[in-house]
Design a protein around this nucleic acid. Structure first.
Length: 571
RNA sequence: CGGGCUGUGGCGCAGCUUGGUUAGCGCGUCGGUCUGGGGGACCGAAGGUCGGAGGUUCAAAUCCUCUCAGCCCGACCA
């Protein structure tokens, strides 16, 4: 293609609202434009990248036996009512009503629809199956952000495996794991698998593929010693042993006027690790007590995963007061019998602890957790902290901010059950199919690549997903010899199957160099009178910045070789 | 949903505190001349219901009320 006839609206300044590097550069480079919060138009350059990402995903999905579908984005409410998610998805699901008054939803994922199709499988002989699509998802995100990283309308590759038994599901899951590893490598993403919470999706196991980036939204605990990696939503770490302070036969109360926080109580001689943090939550409408060690943060997702609760929020001060008789700052669980109590495992065996007395400005000390508190459930509730020891090897854990590029789930039989996806096995016995589901956000993968491949001058696309692989920059468009040489190279590269862009715009070379770098085309061939005098074209590699001169008659071959090399490596 | 912030030509901003000519500036765009190896210079031009509605006033981008939109930080997800 010729740059002079393309729509590539590059900007010198990034829009003020764009902060993430990928957001700024994708807008500046003329790849995307925002229509409204969470909805982006893909411009021609952006769509080329998007389609290259999708093509790689397709190849790898097909390689593990995936069959491509294309399902409706609009679903009847009845489908989601069957699985129970019409309720549980809450405000996250876009809902609408048609002219007949029928309720509809815009699909946020497609377990229900695929499971409905899977109900047509009647024999174990038809299994296993791997089905996928690349299709628009709609999610009414509370807070879209960072350009393409978090949006309300996006293309997702979602695939679903259908197997007769757990061993089959394990194999399908492993195949996806391997395919995802290949996909991200080819996209130029340094993604690593981490143990993850399954969240609202349910199911027994899930793994996220993470790309370290400050623009991400997830924190991952990572061990450099043994390779342990887990989303902090479910990461655990070894506890530093704490020696209990001397206890007493019964808790003793003492006055603590004006002391309302863990920190204040610590200053008053009760170190945080010897305090019990008492939190009150509304859990599906039930007032519930959560207990942690004073210096440990609550990780709500762990609680949600343990209880299966769909709706939790900190309790209102009024409700707390009427239930316990005190305000936050003086709360405790000693003597509480009428509320469910969940205690973090770090409190097991602890005594000589300090906690609120449920009387304003009074605390208790000498508390023995197991003796004095009616704990209903011992649960891992705490968020781990940077530097705590790895549970398997003892090395300190680091916490890394990441972009979630992919997520794979073992779903089990929940959806197949709801949709009636059953088969007869070899013994003629009816079995419910077991499912897995596997997702990659195409636009997010693209943004993650932009996020991790750029410099001050712009993007540095990996060859595999670059909108064009080579740009030929003509320094002087009114110089006959330059034009002829550029046209010649352009024709040769096209003939070699290279995605080549000819920057034939009249104008100053500085603008063209800057645009080529902003847009991030991996290889640049500069054609100008200065080089041609010596029978040379100048070559620049955007990825490493290295420049060299190439003889006119060897340039296109050299570049073709580099393109082919880059396509293989994903660099 | 809680907290912070912003809406003025395509992009970046000033003007608002203390209402008062025709709403400015840089970039970009169009025409022209000179240029031509890292966002060039000069001349000329187009382009704005100042987010929207209501109000105060002789007079509103500016003051008041309501509202909408967008961004960032936290609770949710590919």
């Amino acid at each position: 293609m010729r740059w002079s006839s393309l729509f590539i609206p590059t900007l010198r300044d990034a829009p003020a609202e764009a902060e993430a590097a990928s957001h700024r550069l994708l807008v500046r480079g003329g790849f995307i434009r925002q229509l409204q919060s969470g909805h982006y138009s893909m411009l021609p350059l952006g769509w080329r990248v998007h389609e290259k990402v999708a093509a790689i995903i397709r190849q790898e999905m097909n390689a593990i036996g995936g069959q491509e579908f294309f399902l409706p984005a609009m679903h009847p409410a009845s489908l989601w009512q069957k699985s129970g998610r019409w309720e549980t998805m809450g405000d996250e699901m876009f809902r609408l009503t048609d002219r007949k008054g029928a309720e509809l939803a815009l699909g946020m994922t497609h377990e229900e629809v695929f499971a409905t199709l899977a109900a047509e499988i009647t024999s174990y002989k038809t299994l296993p199956q791997v089905w996928y699509q690349i299709q628009t998802k709609f999610r009414d995100e509370p807070r879209p952000k960072s350009g393409l990283l978090r949006v309300r309308e996006f293309f997702m590759k979602d695939s679903y495996s259908f197997n007769l038994d757990d061993a089959g599901l394990d194999a399908a899951f492993d195949a996806h794991h391997a395919a995802y590893t290949r996909i991200f490598a080819r996209l130029g993403l340094d993604a690593f698998p981490v143990q993850a919470s399954s969240g609202a999706m349910g199911g027994s196991a899930s793994v996220e593929f993470m790309v370290a980036s400050p623009a991400g939204e997830d924190d991952v605990a990572r061990c450099n010693g043994c390779g342990y990696a887990a989303n902090v939503e479910r990461a655990s770490a070894a506890l530093d042993p704490v020696e209990n302070r001397p206890g007493s036969d019964t808790p003793e109360s003492f006055n603590t006027p004006g002391i309302r926080t863990i920190a204040a109580l610590a200053e008053a001689g009760h170190p945080a690790e010897h305090q019990i943090k008492s939190l009150l939550y509304n859990v599906n409408g039930q007032l519930t007590v959560l207990l942690l060690r004073g210096d440990h943060p609550l990780l709500e997702q762990k609680f949600i995963d343990y209880t299966g609760a769909t709706d939790i929020e900190p309790a209102e001060a009024d409700d707390i007061r009427s239930a316990l008789g005190a305000s936050p700052g003086s709360l405790g669980a000693v003597g509480v019998t009428d509320l469910p109590i969940y205690a973090d495992l770090a409190l097991q065996g602890r005594s000589g602890m300090t906690t609120g007395a449920n009387i304003d400005d009074v605390h208790l000390t000498g508390v023995d957790v197991e003796r004095d508190i009616k704990v209903d459930h011992w649960v891992d509730l705490r968020g781990i902290l940077e530097g705590e020891a790895c549970i398997s090897c003892g090395e300190p854990l680091s916490i890394v901010r990441c972009i979630e590029a992919g997520h794979i789930f073992k779903l089990g039989r929940k959806y197949a059950e709801a949709m009636g996806a059953k088969v007869l096995d070899a013994d003629g016995v009816t079995q419910t199919i077991t499912m897995g589901s596997y997702g990659i956000g195409v636009g997010r993968a693209m943004a993650a690549a932009a996020e991790t491949h750029h410099d001050d001058n712009g993007l540095q696309w990996p060859m595999t997903i670059a909108p064009y692989e080579v740009v030929i920059t003509i320094v002087k468009t009114d110089h006959q010899e330059s034009m002829a040489a550029a046209e010649n190279a352009y024709a040769e590269l096209q003939a070699a199957g290279v995605d080549v862009l000819l920057d034939d715009r009249p104008g100053r070379p500085g603008v063209k160099f800057a645009d080529a770098e902003l847009v991030g085309i991996p290889l640049r061939l500069t054609v100008g009178p200065r080089g041609l005098e010596n029978g040379q074209l100048e070559f620049a590699d955007r990825r490493d910045g290295i420049k060299s001169d190439l003889a006119v008659d060897q340039a296109t071959q050299h570049i073709t070789d580099l393109v082919n090399q880059g396509r293989r490596l994903g660099t």
